[in-house]
Design a protein around this nucleic acid. Structure first.
Length: 191
DNA sequence: GGTAGGATGGGCT
DNA sequence: GCCCATCCTACCC
């Protein structure tokens, strides 16, 4: 049920697409991934790993199937899942979830959310709703049942269309179609 | 319906 | 000192 490490030991784009429909679980809450973005190695200047291996980006260069959580704009934590074989950079930003378990807990963690669509429809929102912090989760092994942060096979919901487009909020490599979302899903971060 | 602007702190030059 | 892989509010149609 928990996705095996071999799932992540592949090209980042493939992993980003295949993560759609799977389930992220942490601290009494879970959600189905409906939007992802791939951040590659090589000449992807939008990726944190583009400036090389540093203390912060060490996890991205490490073994696949681990969580890379970072602070954005000094305010919010964002969740990534590391792909590619050990030693090669590449990770997938989780941008939106469809809430699955623990909706009441999510509402307590996000008192400002008006409807269910506001709970997890954004990279900063979903970490708040699931209680994911970089202090607790950065570097966590999402393939290990006892890690507290796991990614599981999702419920079978038949065929769905994957829509690709430019990544959100970046200024470099803006034309690369590395954002993926479930077509027509109302829990995506935008459009 | 839309958007402009502020909050806020770590990472890197 | 500048740059952010964002969110929320206020205010304006």
């Amino acid at each position: 049920m928990i996705l095996p490490r071999s799932f992540y030991t592949r090209g980042t784009v493939e992993v980003a697409r295949d993560l759609l429909g799977t389930v992220v679980r942490h601290s009494a809450t879970s959600g189905i991934i409906v939007e992802t973005e791939a951040y590659l190695g090589g000449d992807d200047l939008a990726a944190h790993s583009a400036r090389g291996l540093t203390e912060r980006t060490r996890v991205i260069f490490g073994p696949p199937g681990h969580a890379y959580v970072y602070l954005i704009y000094g305010v919010y934590d964002c969740l990534n899942l590391v792909a590619e074989p050990d030693g090669q950079p590449g990770c997938v930003l989780i941008r939106a979830l469809e809430p699955l378990d623990g909706l009441d807990v999510m509402r307590e963690r996000r008192p400002r959310a008006r409807g269910a669509e506001d709970l997890t429809s954004g990279p900063g929102r979903l970490t708040m709703a699931l209680g994911i912090t970089r202090a607790e989760c950065c570097g966590a092994d999402v393939c290990a049942a006892d890690s507290g942060l796991t990614v599981e096979e999702g419920p079978d919901r038949g065929a769905f269309e994957i829509v690709a487009g430019p990544r959100v909020g970046i200024t470099k490599c803006v034309d690369w179609p590395l954002r993926f979302l479930l077509g027509g899903n109302r829990f995506v971060s935008r459009g």
